[in-house]
Design a protein around this nucleic acid. Sequence first.
DNA 1: CGCCGACTTGACACCAATCAAGATAAGTGG
DNA 2: CCACTTATCTTGATTGGTGTCAAGTCGGCG
Lengths: 250, 250
Amino acid sequence: MKPLSRALKSIKAAPEIRARPFDRVTDHPSRIENVLSNREQQELRSIATVLDYGRGGAIIFTEGAEARFVYAIDEGIVRISRHASNGQRQILAFMVPGDLFGIPDDGIYVNTAEVICPARIYRFGWQRLSEVMTREPQLQQHLLMKVAHDLRQAQRQIMILGHQTTHQRLATFLLEFLHYPEFYDEKNSCLILPISRFDLADYLGIARETLARAFTKLEYDGLVRRLDFRAIQILDVVGLRSLKSSEARR
Amino acid sequence: MKPLSRALKSIKAAPEIRARPFDRVTDHPSRIENVLSNREQQELRSIATVLDYGRGGAIIFTEGAEARFVYAIDEGIVRISRHASNGQRQILAFMVPGDLFGIPDDGIYVNTAEVICPARIYRFGWQRLSEVMTREPQLQQHLLMKVAHDLRQAQRQIMILGHQTTHQRLATFLLEFLHYPEFYDEKNSCLILPISRFDLADYLGIARETLARAFTKLEYDGLVRRLDFRAIQILDVVGLRSLKSSEARR
DNA sequence: CGCCGACTTGACACCAATCAAGATAAGTGG
DNA sequence: CCACTTATCTTGATTGGTGTCAAGTCGGCG
């Protein structure tokens, strides 16, 4: 929607890469406890490029395009989506700092990746990364664990889309986000959603209006309170959990 | 449902493993063109155990159990499922010969795997497989590609569950199976479904009755014809394709 | 032959998509 | 700073699709 030129502020070369370790993923719920050696981190840095996106909306890559790079997030959120042949968009995942995406399928990207807020992203040449990984089995194992984690996340998503009502989907999503201290302030139970209703609806596989109604219902039932479009106060975590696992028609 | 003792006929030791290469996956639609060296095949065989299941229904492993093995299919079909907290079952995938499954998450299985027909399955100790892969980067890369392929399949499933009607889901599923010569006899356009309606409904995320109605509609529209519970004659592939990508409410 | 399981069909209620319009916040330019 | 436009989100009314419960059919197996 937004012109790419404005959104993509600048692309710097590799040397300025930040020293923060590559695998910050251990911070968030994935169960990977992997510590890369200094040498491995060094190897990665040497082939990385840093991309700085000033604001949301910029496209990182598009489905169908030739795939020569893999990406890892340092800051910001990226939405991974795919368009059905009838034009419907489905958001497959929201990637957060530490996540890796863009692994090619037979040389092309099968998904579209866009930043939804200011972001800093590392870019690796797929060819060179493969070479490095051949030399460093630990690194490849780390990548394997990451992809396996993504697979489980996708399966979680299948569970949600398969048999949950709209309210349950929303409850599940909100509960998921409570795990991220970047977005959930546990003190006053306030959750700052970094995702628009539009995107959220496409992620949960429901219409935008239905999503709004789901929020209304949760609010009516005293489970949450909308302070603002972005800010959601969580009033009853237990209630959300029981809603999530309650009996579902459809 | 069936007692395990009867279904699990025998477990042989490694030496009798068949000579068919490990990566028969190249036969089917996945885009992996990977040729393992003889030494790598040798390494795999040396740590493999062969499991022979006489008939369908046997459980290979259950979600939540301690995970010490990964599995690869030589013959037969395995359904990978997960149970929601409300008891709903969702089938995440059907695995076919060449596929690999059972990669542990933090030492436990997150899914349940069951054979749905007579099957022969290779079993590998995860610990030992990891060791071998550290020695053989090619092998690990191969595994990585397999998991990446599974991820894409899961994403395909998300697309289906997200925005397709029941008829479209069924059409999509049938079209998918036309690629497998084991199940589709192109000569007389006859597709032999190795999957029960029960399982298929849980895979497509719909009720069994709704699935039956979907079949009825496709038959009424002249797209397919039911010869038998298992055998489906495909009358109009183009029609199925256009149904699959037609506009969808919901 | 009769039971049993798997599958199909029917009737009905209900949830969710759609179309349309209103409300709120955020930019934009004078 | 205010009026304007725009984007985003919410609410309302209606229609259709899908889950559920119930009954019926088909085929296999003892």
